[in-house]
Design a protein around this nucleic acid. Structure first.
Lengths: 245, 245
DNA sequence: CATTGACAGATAATCGATTATTTTTAATAG
DNA sequence: CTATTAAAAATAATCGATTATCTGTCAATG
């Protein structure tokens, strides 16, 4: 419900970060930095789902002491990306078909509800933010041969979905939706290298966005629901291909 | 999504805990114990909403070192009962009318959805668990003059609501509902010493439970929604009385 | 008189070492 | 051979001390 770091912060080169003065956008403490790095490692699949996290090994890998390491891991527990047991340590949250299906179902419930609320009470700034997010997202190509474009697209995609519902005026609801989006993104990054051919995801996003700013509640919410559902179906097939139950 | 301790565990005297062999129900590490103690301190209002948590002071109060203290606080962040900022430390999550209203709204959405799902797929064991929880709850009097009965009632009440939706087969959804219940309980414990006279809460619970096991979806979900809504309205009035915005 | 900046005290974050617990291995009895 | 137990190794949890950061105070400046 809190947490300082901001893993989806605006892209910025090392030089800018170092020189420009306004670098105070979180990531201050080692613990925070670790949380971000670990989150990325898990969502990208670098750390395998279900695998144990050896503290001593991780300590050496990241060149940090135990305290900030545990601090960082604690945050990922809140995110649902890490599981913990007293005296047994940490492990990367496992993936499963059932988990993916629940995430999809809950997104359909919560994200759609949040969009409905946003359309009910969102202001003009909210509308503007949607159009900006949409534009930035649609201008970014997903090129499977260049991993950095995939990461970039993921960031903007997440941003788009969050912006869409950002007008709802319900911090807790946004928090839940953010968690679900995170969990969902892991499945996509691990299993879905390229989007399936029979979809035009860009157009789907455009339709949702346009319906939202036009305040056509039935249209927009239904489009969003279908969008989420299709993604779920898609991912489910990919999981099945790899034999995951 | 994980967390080992179990703040709503069965009541047990110190003697029993010490002698009987099966005391391995969590609460092993100092960090876990602290999480429970702090949670209780916050939900009961002992630690004032919005107040800063001084690590050094807390360390002395609880006679522990910094590491487990931070560990415990980290868990309460997941619970939404504590907020944190890098280099600024921890504070008890503030309360507000808006926050209470959001909690109520989300409970109406999520808990009702979870009940619907439970009624769709819950098995006989689920039904039995409901009847047991209901019985235990209704047999417990809330006597304002004896604080321990209030605590006991809170525990059983929480248990009842969680049991009601425990058949839904959706761990994440149950997690969210658990969080919301926690957050809601804090408002009740702090603001509602006795239930308002125009309600028979015991009967409300019975109606919901009976509707649930009878699989009368419309009836049960509507009763639950009203139950949650009334509680919200009630609490809102009490907050207004104390001048909280 | 408001603003800035340096200082000091308070507080949070981190480290390295130590202690507690679990897991593995090895030995032994049945 | 399998099951049981004891010792050893691996791992997690905690501690006390140190370092980094923040916050308030007060003097100097415009």
């Amino acid at each position: 419900m809190s947490s300082t770091d901001d893993s989806a912060s605006a892209p910025m080169t090392d030089e800018e970060t170092a020189s420009a003065g306004f670098s105070d956008d979180g990531k201050n403490t080692i613990g925070s930095q670790l949380a971000s790095r670990l989150r990325e490692a898990i969502i990208s699949g670098e750390l395998e789902a279900g695998s144990k996290i050896n503290l001593d090994k991780a300590r050496r890998t990241f060149n940090v002491s135990l305290s900030p390491l545990r601090e960082g891991l604690a945050r990922l527990i809140s995110d649902g990306l890490v599981e913990f047991q007293d005296n047994r340590g940490y492990r990367v949250a496992p993936i499963s078909l059932a988990n993916l299906e629940e995430i999809t179902t809950l997104r359909e419930e919560l994200e759609v509800f949040a969009l409905r609320e946003s359309m009910r009470i969102g202001d003009v700034e909210w509308e503007g933010n949607i159009m900006r997010s949409l534009h930035r997202l649609n201008r970014t190509e997903r090129d499977a041969s260049r991993p950095e474009t995939l990461e970039q697209w993921e960031t903007l995609h997440r941003e788009f979905h969050l912006t869409l519902i950002s007008g709802c005026g319900k911090p807790l609801l946004l928090h839940f939706c953010g968690l679900l989006l995170n969990l969902n993104d892991r499945y996509r990054r691990v299993f879905l290298i390229r989007t399936s051919g029979d979809r035009n995801v860009g157009q789907e996003h455009s339709e949702i966005a346009q319906g939202a700013v036009a305040r056509d509640i039935e249209y927009a919410t239904e489009k969003l629901r279908q969008h989420i559902h299709r993604t779920g179906t898609n991912l489910r097939n990919h999981l099945a291909t790899k034999g995951i139950v």
